[in-house]
Design a protein around this nucleic acid. Structure first.
Lengths: 194, 194
DNA sequence: GTCTATATAGTGATAGAC
DNA sequence: GTCTATCACTATATAGAC
């Protein structure tokens, strides 16, 4: 992928972010050098600084983009029964995360490599996502469909369980994503039902 | 903690491991220098190499020690009913992990910083632990106590859910560890019961 | 917009004095 | 067993030519 010369501003920027995403997910933010990212893109290290002010911004932009995409696509229809909303949430979470293994890995593993200011932003987005699920659980409790002693705990437990799928699921493996979604929905449904 | 001179072989070794544990958990293996570990112990960087052949061994020893402790302490009594064995496992997992937040964090976050040979060892120990739970689930299914379509999936889901406690639980917080164990056991029990 | 070259600082690990 | 000093690299980021 060695390049020669010329102008590529409109395509190089996305390629820098894609290379950083792949390399950060594979080796970890601290272990990946700007030179390695540049080599993956096919430019020299100095050229990266036309697309990002520094390495930290590269990480933050990837994580922020991931979290805002997550929030934008989360299903949210308060008119549906709580049980349906919960099923929608479970299916969405598994499918969204299965589609973006690198982003998910970074979002969980590289939090400590964010500056305190950037960490606060990402943490806020994460809490916003958790609140979506917690609201569904509280609604179901109020309406008598769910038996959940502590909605906050159950929220965190469900999200941890669902996100765990990413540690083992691979497309083309023993189970289809449909089967995975069905299995996890079965567990979640039983765990929260009266 | 600056030191002056003298011999400390029997106490410096454990202190090196303790410092590496704390710093790796706080900043990540790749981001922590041998000089930082030495400073935490109160010696110069060169002196560390009296206690470890290299930085990689320091990480591996911490992870291997954690996993062998985990396996050694896991309750295992096949004569008890599967439901009791499962409850024992859930309570043990939460308490063991709550006691060792740094070790748990490293065991999950630093897998990719192990050499391939060391990774294979840790991965084998991890699978051994998962097999303990999977065996309990299969026993309960055979005896008609559990309704679990795919014991392997449920094993991974339960472990992910339980380990997630470490991301938010802090001693002295809103919930006691007894309450946390009770809440999670309630969810697990309902999720696997017929 | 990308290049080459470089400033400045840090890295893991080792050698040899004490 | 710990020290100081150092080797050989690598790091992020910048300056200036083209």
């Amino acid at each position: 992928m060695a390049r020669t010369t010329g102008s590529h501003s409109d395509i190089t920027g996305p390629r820098v972010r894609a290379a950083a995403l792949r390399l950060f997910a594979a080796g970890g933010y601290a272990a990946v050098s700007m030179r390695a990212i540049a080599a993956e893109v096919g430019v020299q290290a100095g050229a990266l600084y036309n697309y990002t002010p520094d390495k930290q911004s590269l990480l933050f932009d990837l994580m922020q983009g991931h979290m805002t995409d997550l929030l934008a696509e989360t299903p949210s229809d308060p008119t549906r029964p709580a049980m349906q909303q919960l099923q929608d949430f479970v299916a969405f979470h598994i499918r969204f995360h299965a589609d973006r293994p690198d982003e998910v890995f970074i979002a969980y593993m590289e939090l400590r490599n964010l500056t305190p200011e950037n960490f606060a932003v990402i943490e806020g987005l994460r809490r916003e996502y958790e609140d979506r699920l917690e609201t569904i659980l509280r609604t179901g409790v109020e309406n008598g469909y769910f038996a959940v002693a502590d909605p906050k705990i159950v929220t965190l437990a469900i999200i941890a369980m669902l996100t765990g799928v990413n540690t083992w699921y691979r497309a083309g493996g023993r189970l289809s994503l449909d089967e995975v979604v069905a299995q996890y929905w079965d567990m979640v449904r039983k765990a929260v039902t009266v």
